[in-house]
Design a protein around this nucleic acid. Structure first.
Lengths: 222, 222
DNA sequence: TGTACATCAGTGAACGCGCGTTCACTGATGTAC
DNA sequence: TGTACATCAGTGAACGCGCGTTCACTGATGTAC
């Protein structure tokens, strides 16, 4: 009973109990406040009330901690998208439903980016590691990407995504979404009010969706 | 004659001659190699062969130097777009010409992002300054944005951009372009070969263009 | 043409900061017998 | 139920690093007379 960690970061017992999780949570809080560069091992240890060295019993080093935070951020983003998906009832018409799903996950995505810019940036930050996974491999296991893939499949089935556009659709949609989020967080759109941002989000999703429905223009003969 | 600065960073005279430019060039080289975080005042001074203190005669501080680099990177990006625009002859048909211009500046943009990722990232990096300009104000004076605005006006005049889409078109196009560039530089698209990247670029521009031509879907009644 | 002097553009040493990481250590826990 | 002992999970001090910035300074330049 006396080794239950207190929330204030001051614990009573010598052993912490669940330092891995406590450090991760503290690091997530840092990311929330200042993005990926704010994820500092010493500061996380400080917040938990533990010496910096203690972190090395639970993480290989700073990169390892940062990566744990990154994955947590991706999960949170995925959660926001899923929540938006579940917020409205399904529509009976398959085309309308596919369209709804596409817009819903987009909305969940942008809502998260606006509400938690630090976490959003961390979810997509670069990690310098000794053991470099491929970025694609990581992405494949991440929920946000899986949700997008599913939504695109639905659009295809509903006839709202032109078959010739399917193969590169992930890249096209992800680009627009990521770019818009970055412009809102860090870029020239940051200074506008919520109404304008809402309009920019709607316009972007609408334009992409309209474009994906159209057949691709022919390649110029070479 | 003896006060001509040598390229090796070792100068013969006490006074440098044009230290402002030399430091900026050195800092640009740093950005080229490692992006905005690699722009380090001390390192730039080292490359020029001058004490760190000397930089303070020419720049208010680190942020000021970094901002000079950022502006230079924006100009280089603008130059790449202009070059792509001038690389092909104008087309007689206004619609075809508007389309060509749009694609050309896009191509120039992505070519620069792929060839000089460090400079691209620096062109859009955040600068912590005491005197915060608005990001929009900066953008308005930047060449890349002006080229985009012009291309969109041409598309509108040629009937390839639906009038209702004109107001937010900059945001839509810029989002897609910025996002795709980031995915290629830093993200999951980084590991693909040039052919796939070319295809992703073409698909993105084509989808956006097709979408911009279509009328917007009606707002859901609230 | 010469000279005194203000101004400009550098130097070199040092400061404080905070980071990630390593070292030898010690207190707490749990298991074999 | 006890006890010896291996193992686990912490501590605290220190290292080296490189940064931006400041200080008092000195060498070079140019201008007034």
């Amino acid at each position: 009973m006396e080794d239950v960690p207190s929330k204030s970061g001051i614990r009573s017992s010598y052993h912490h109990g669940n330092l891995t999780e406590a450090l991760t949570e503290a690091a997530i809080a840092l990311a929330r406040g200042g993005g990926p560069d704010a994820v500092v091992l010493r500061e996380a240890a400080r917040k938990v009330g533990v010496s910096p060295t203690a972190a090395y019993r639970h993480f290989a080093g700073h990169s390892d901690l940062k990566e744990a935070v990154k994955h947590a951020c991706q999960d949170l983003l995925g959660g926001s998208m899923r929540a938006a998906l579940a917020a409205e009832p399904e529509l009976p018409d398959p085309a309308a439903e596919a369209c709804r799903r596409f817009r819903a996950i987009g909305l969940g995505y942008f809502t998260f980016a606006r509400a938690q810019p630090g976490l959003y940036l961390t979810a997509f930050c670069r990690i310098d590691r000794d053991d470099p996974h491929t970025a694609l491999e990581e992405l494949d296991h991440a929920e946000p990407y899986a949700l997008l893939t599913g939504a695109l499949d639905d659009l295809l089935a509903a006839g709202l995504l032109h078959p010739a556009r399917r193969p590169l659709a992930e890249a096209v949609v992800w680009s627009a979404a990521h770019g818009l989020a970055m412009l809102m967080i860090d870029g020239p759109l940051a200074q506008f009010g919520p109404e304008i941002l809402d309009a920019a989000i709607a316009a972007t999703m609408d334009t992409i969706l309209a474009g994906l429905t159209q057949p691709p223009s022919e390649d110029p003969p070479t």
